[in-house]
Amino acid sequence: MEKLMNESSDLTTRTKINTVQLGLWTGVWVLTTALAAFGPKFFWEFNTPLTILGVLINLGIGFGMILANKRYLNGLDELMRKIQLEAMAISLGVGLVCGLSYELLEDIKLITFEPEVSHLIMLMALTYMVGVIAGNRRYK
């Protein structure tokens, strides 16, 4: 069905549909992440079954978002896909290299605070955005 849709509709329509779907999946994933993070404390007083359910729902929606992202990438034209994939590769590399170094900083007592994964995610998001902008400029 997905393949049929990708082949039968034109690029603009296809990209629009895939972008909206990716946006919806991402939005729901953010909401379920917030629910899994704050629900135990504010809504169900650390009830274990509900907490596990919250985490499982969050994971399920997360996988849905990953598939929506894959569908979005496959729906792009080949140059746009190349730009996106190059940006993702750089972002992944920066995340891996800087993430490990960041953790090492604490191990070897160069920083006194505990490394936060959110810092790494911000760095990866920034790198990804810079990668996409640089890619678009390169092929203009």
């Binding site: 034109d10 690029l11 034209d77 080949e78 140059l79 746009m80 678009n136 092929y139 203009k140």
Partner: peptide, 10 residues
């Protein structure tokens, strides 16, 4: 060709 104009330009 079912691509973006940017691809044709490139």
């Amino acid at each position: 060709a079912d691509v973006t104009r940017q691809t044709i330009i490139a």
